[in-house]
């Protein structure tokens, strides 16, 4: 097995996002997300006055932060982070206090009524571990999302982040978000 260090992240070219929501449904199917809850979604920011108008779409989900506040506040350690950066909830330890939901600057978590625990984007770790890409990335028609390993210097992420201007959202929270939005 390859024991090279990995750091998974997503680069998002949100200019290409057309709000088709394929990613949202793919995630629902892949992860059995209940009706009314979402692990990923698309924000639409509409501005201007007729006829000078604009709409900006930005896909959102867990940012799999470097220093995730959700993991920090969890009283039982149920919220945890893998070495490769993926932030997960170990359901057996989750008592359902929902403190992590308040602590997430992106509102990326939801309470699963049936299990009484908190669920969130897993970056499709079950797929990633098989060498596949997350369901949202795979299905995206306009290829807004690029999944990859930041530790791979030859990887697509490095190339994009080196050549394109980008931002992260709410860096002031100190969470170190790992969803990179291209400008």
């Amino acid at each position: 097995m390859d024991i090279r260090k990995r750091r998974y992240a997503l680069v998002i070219d949100s200019r290409k996002c057309i709000n088709c929501k394929a990613c949202v449904v793919a995630c629902k199917a892949e992860n059995g997300v209940p009706t009314g809850n979402f692990r990923n979604w698309i924000n639409a920011d509409r501005q201007g006055e007729y006829p000078k108008l604009r709409i900006d779409f930005t896909p959102e989900q867990c940012h799999h932060c470097e220093h995730p506040s959700c993991v920090r506040v969890c009283p039982t350690g149920a919220s945890w982070q893998r070495k490769d950066g993926i932030v997960l909830v170990y359901e057996d330890d989750c008592i359902g206090c929902r403190y992590c939901m308040l602590a997430c600057p992106y509102d990326a978590r939801y309470f699963h009524e049936e299990s009484g625990t908190v669920h969130k984007c897993t970056l499709c770790n079950h797929r990633v571990d098989k060498g596949e890409v997350p369901a949202c990335v795979e299905t995206c028609p306009s290829k807004v999302r690029v999944f990859g390993d930041l530790e791979d210097p030859a990887g697509r992420l490095h190339e994009l982040l080196a050549t394109r201007r980008h931002i992260v959202k709410e860096p002031q929270t100190g969470n170190g978000p790992q969803l990179y939005y291209l400008l």
Partner: peptide, 10 residues
Amino acid sequence: LGNWYRFYKL
């Protein structure tokens, strides 16, 4: 709590 009986985990 979502799972009250798990409070001991605290």
